[in-house]
Simulated assay, not measured.
Amino acid sequence: MKKAFVIVIIGLLIVFGGIFGFKAFVNSKIAEAMAHMPKPVVTVSAATAEIAHWHPQLRAVASLAAVQGVEVSPQIAGNVTAIRFHSGQYVQAGTPLVQIDDSTQLAQLASDQAQLRLASSNLQRTKELIATKAASQAQLDSAQATYQTDQAAIKDIQATLNKLTISAPFSGYLGIRQVNVGQYLTPGTKIVDLQSWSPLYANFTLPQSDLKNIQAGTPVQIQTDALPGQTFSGKVTALGSAVNSTTRQIEVQATIDNPKNQLRPGLFGELTVVRDTTEKVLVIPVSAISYNTFGDYVYVIHKEKKDGKTQETAVQQVIKPGKQRDGMVEILSGLKQGDTIVTAGQVKLVNGSLVTISHDA
């Protein structure tokens, strides 16, 4: 029984040994064949690291504000008797917007005008009497004072009437109406927003270290995600009178052109301060950079001769990128001018891969 068991074990060892031995033999032959096969050549796109002249830029987040903007509200309480505007309408300065009940004031004006006419007649009559010495100087002074008092009363009631007719204080665009006819308004009640849109202020802050690089007249550009792909230009018009002692930032205000009224007060965007000077920077396309946990790198194409033929090999090179602009990135270290780097096809590459450069557009 034991002898049969041993024979079975030996048989199994022979069978499995043959199987594994055959697999090892096949694998060795495959490896040998692969070793003699030429390395695959990967087609890639490439570009050259080159020197560019960039204007140094300062960046900040800016908030847009109207040069003139206000919440229109009444100064005197009363009921709304007429609304003379539509939401979103453009109005000129002085355009009547809302009428508050002025019936009492109009009645008072009529009474004051009658008093003024009487005072004018009395003053004229007193002047005639004093010419014949039939009236005293005191009577003339009293008549003159009464006339001037009645004049002042009319001016006062007219000023009140002007306040009851609420008009646009400047030209601009109206917002959404907040009141209705018949509504009782108190002083300060919001009636509607009025904003001027062109130009606009862009308010932002910069660190105190940038104070030397900015002054009134310095060009700026702003972009906002509300209008992607569009850039609006302007100039710095004012700097804060002091640096904030807590944040060490200085307030800056620029005036932005908005000729087509596309921007709105309240928007925010990325503002760039463009300095007059230029600097030389080494740049490559952003698409050339690959990223991993060990750092940023690119594939540099090296040419070498082998067996009388020129080969192009892609070699990984760690780099230190800097600022980005218009699809290009500044290279602070790791490359030199004239280096050829892979810009497309990196996903197929490993360090040392053979490549051929595609010249298709």
Results as ranks from 00 to 15, higher is better:
257 D>A: 15
269 G>N: 10
310 T>D: 01
254 A>R: 01
303 K>S: 15
323 K>R: 12
288 A>K: 07
260 K>I: 05
297 Y>E: 13
288 A>S: 15
238 A>S: 08
298 V>M: 04
270 E>L: 12
258 N>S: 11
303 K>R: 15
248 R>M: 07
314 A>K: 08
268 F>C: 04
281 V>Q: 12
319 I>Y: 01
229 G>Q: 11
319 I>H: 05
273 V>E: 13
261 N>A: 13
290 S>G: 01
318 V>S: 14
242 A>D: 12
263 L>E: 11
321 P>D: 07
285 P>D: 09
317 Q>L: 03
279 E>A: 05
268 F>G: 12
306 K>N: 09
264 R>S: 10
248 R>F: 10
266 G>A: 04
295 G>L: 02
262 Q>D: 15
271 L>P: 09
270 E>N: 12
279 E>D: 13
279 E>M: 07
250 I>P: 11
228 P>G: 05
239 L>H: 03
269 G>I: 11
255 T>R: 05
285 P>Q: 06
311 Q>P: 05
306 K>M: 03
268 F>E: 01
319 I>D: 09
250 I>F: 14
283 V>H: 05
249 Q>I: 10
233 S>V: 02
230 Q>T: 13
313 T>Q: 10
264 R>P: 08
259 P>M: 10
273 V>H: 08
235 K>I: 07
269 G>V: 11
301 I>N: 13
301 I>W: 02
266 G>T: 03
278 T>P: 03
315 V>L: 03
317 Q>Y: 00
317 Q>C: 07
316 Q>N: 04
302 H>V: 13
234 G>D: 05
297 Y>F: 15
228 P>E: 08
257 D>F: 08
261 N>C: 02
277 T>I: 06
279 E>G: 05
271 L>T: 08
289 I>A: 05
254 A>M: 02
279 E>F: 00
262 Q>W: 11
284 I>W: 02
296 D>L: 04
272 T>G: 03
288 A>L: 02
280 K>W: 03
296 D>F: 01
289 I>N: 04
282 L>R: 01
295 G>D: 09
308 G>I: 08
304 E>C: 06
270 E>T: 07
276 D>N: 11
304 E>W: 02
305 K>L: 00
232 F>A: 01
318 V>L: 10
229 G>H: 14
304 E>N: 14
283 V>C: 12
264 R>M: 12
324 Q>Y: 03
310 T>G: 10
297 Y>K: 08
270 E>S: 09
254 A>G: 03
274 V>R: 09
275 R>W: 05
268 F>V: 12
277 T>Q: 15
260 K>S: 15
299 Y>C: 06
230 Q>S: 14
230 Q>D: 13
286 V>G: 00
308 G>D: 02
267 L>P: 03
282 L>I: 04
274 V>A: 07
257 D>P: 03
250 I>N: 08
263 L>V: 06
245 S>K: 15
292 N>C: 07
320 K>E: 13
313 T>S: 05
267 L>Y: 12
